[in-house]
Design a protein around this nucleic acid. Structure first.
Lengths: 345, 345
DNA sequence: TTGTAAGCGTTATCAA
DNA sequence: TTGATAACGCTTACAA
């Protein structure tokens, strides 16, 4: 059927072991035979069979990237740089989407055995991993944008995150300092899991409290329908605006929701930022090109993914785990303006 | 090391062949042994090793999805449904990004041998495939959003496309019928390859010609810098507006570019659609939530990917190839208005 | 420097 | 209905 190492050996008149040695630069081979072998390889268009190699070596040089909700544009950037860097280091990347209803960890554990994975990167999801999870996994694991629970042994995994609670606080305080008091919050969360979204929400609450603003649960939109984030933001914002005519600003836990929310504001005839200020999260590119450009808490996606890759390969080489908290940048682009407190009216 | 079929056999007190039979529902097994085996499988947490299985069977039940520029939001939807459907049919999907500088076909040919792929879906790219390409591939191949050259044997591959030339014509004619005469075109292409973009461009030219409007090459922005599409649209639009004060409308070959272009219009103080009409291509979700919502030629992404999957599995089962041209829908959302011809002024 | 042969974990073919 | 056993294509001792 397909051309194998035997065919190459036969054509070049050497043993299969020699062919293997030439191809892997292992052992010592004379220049002469090397040439012969390479010529045969080219002529036959030989590509070594990966399954056989993996089976024999017990290691696949493949790392899996499991992404909770791969369609999130924020993850796109990260995925892209991760893919590049992984293949640069001679590894293979296997991307897999994880639904909200699936458990990325049990998926990972299965895949590791099934496909002899060398390592795993988990993106998105929640902070609910346990010691046992990592032990069962058995290969280096990097958590990107999430971490494990507080009580989990930090030698078992690496994590690259931002301080979501603090950033939620930052976004909210920014609006408060601009003079806003009635600040809505656009939020979705899967169940009661501790997620980045939930932490941002906690930051929002803390900011209100810190500044003596009463927390009004009715100003938080958290209904969890399975629409897109854009639609979700749009619908929830409409809803909030209907219920709270005095609302002058809103924090969205994602730029995608912020865009949906912005559309809701505009299509209801109000203006951004004159009537309503909006700030999002993540720093996706299209938010900058929106009309108006949307303020956001921008995660250093590039740096974070680079760091994740570094962490993974350090673990792969037997090194230590990494736990890095990046700082996100508050980008002011004009979708937030002075609120009622500072407004002359 | 890891738990193998031998361990399961030992624990359940049967031979490895029996374990294999039970797991694959092949041959005949007594209920009693089946129970025993399954119990052992559960207890040991056994997961069959994929590499061994693939090596033995010579087929991986894996299909590869090679995407030219995976970050394109339009492809996102498609990728998502493809992934779902593929795993629903018990196959594994391997996504891989292809850079503009890489050849997706030679990548595919390599991967097929390397990983015993069962089939391949190629998304994006150009119309430059040859008979020999498909013969060398050796497994069913579906082209999604592109097709092969005219002279290629249609029994060798399937293709799911829209008629890009006609759709380019449609978009342009829409603007012409609205009364526009000076219509810009935002376009990027890799080299001289025949791509969907190029076809749309040809459609644009034909529409102008059909309506007796002189083609002005200076109204086409086609500089190929490696920025994002958003930035590209923005920069090129600025450029066009500077050079052509009389331009009243623009066609962009992608919604992402249209968004960038819209931002350029707005930030220069002009209005959409009052001063400049804009229409994009593809139908990505965020274009609808843009301010204003952008008109577009919307590809039926869901249907197209479903059809691609069907085509692939039909080929996998020895069936015939499929060649389907879908019609795209012109979505009027308010970013295009009457041009000078019909304007009272 | 090279070739022979064992074995990685499966599945499939035989006998039993 | 089951259990040995021979591949699958490769890497890696070990011998030559």
């Amino acid at each position: 059927m397909s051309v194998t190492i035997k065919d190459v050996a036969k054509l070049s008149g050497v043993g299969i072991a020699t062919v293997s040695r030439v191809l892997n630069n292992s052992g010592i081979t004379s220049n002469e035979t090397r040439e012969k072998v390479m010529a045969a390889v080219r002529e036959l268009n030989y590509v070594p069979n990966n399954s056989a190699r993996v089976l024999k070596m017990g290691q696949s040089k493949t790392i899996a990237l499991l992404v909770k909700s791969i369609t999130n544009p924020f993850f796109q950037k990260m995925i892209h740089t991760i893919e590049q860097k992984v293949s640069l280091r001679g590894y293979h990347l296997e991307m897999r989407n994880v639904n909200y209803s699936q458990s990325e960890m049990s998926m990972a554990i299965k895949e590791v055995q099934d496909r002899n994975l060398s390592g795993v990167i988990l993106m998105g999801g929640s902070f609910g991993y346990t010691n046992e999870d990592f032990e069962r996994l058995g290969v280096p694991c990097v958590l990107l944008t999430v971490a494990a629970g507080e009580d989990v042994n930090t030698d078992l995994y690496s994590s690259i995150i931002i301080d979501d609670e603090a950033e939620g606080f930052k976004a909210t305080e920014y609006l408060i300092n601009l003079g806003h008091r009635r600040i809505g919050f656009l939020y979705s969360n899967s169940g009661n899991a501790l997620t980045p979204n939930r932490l941002r929400y906690q930051g929002y609450q803390r900011a209100l409290e810190t500044h003596g603003i009463p927390f009004d649960k009715d100003m938080v939109s958290a209904i969890n329908i399975s629409e897109s984030d854009y639609e979700f933001g749009f619908n929830m914002m409409r809803n909030l605006m209907m219920r709270h005519k005095d609302m002058t600003a809103v924090v969205a836990i994602a730029d995608t929701m912020a865009i949906g929310a912005a559309k809701a504001v505009i299509s209801s005839g109000l203006r951004i930022p004159e009537d309503i200020s909006i700030i999002g999260f993540d720093g996706i590119e299209v938010a900058e090109f929106y009309n108006p450009s949307l303020d956001t808490i921008c995660q250093p996606a590039e740096q974070m993914s680079l760091r994740a890759i570094d962490a993974l390969f350090e673990m792969l080489q037997g090194g230590k785990t990494t736990h890095k908290v990046f700082e996100a940048a508050l980008l002011k682009r004009g979708s937030c303006a002075a609120g009622p407190t500072f407004k002359k009216s």
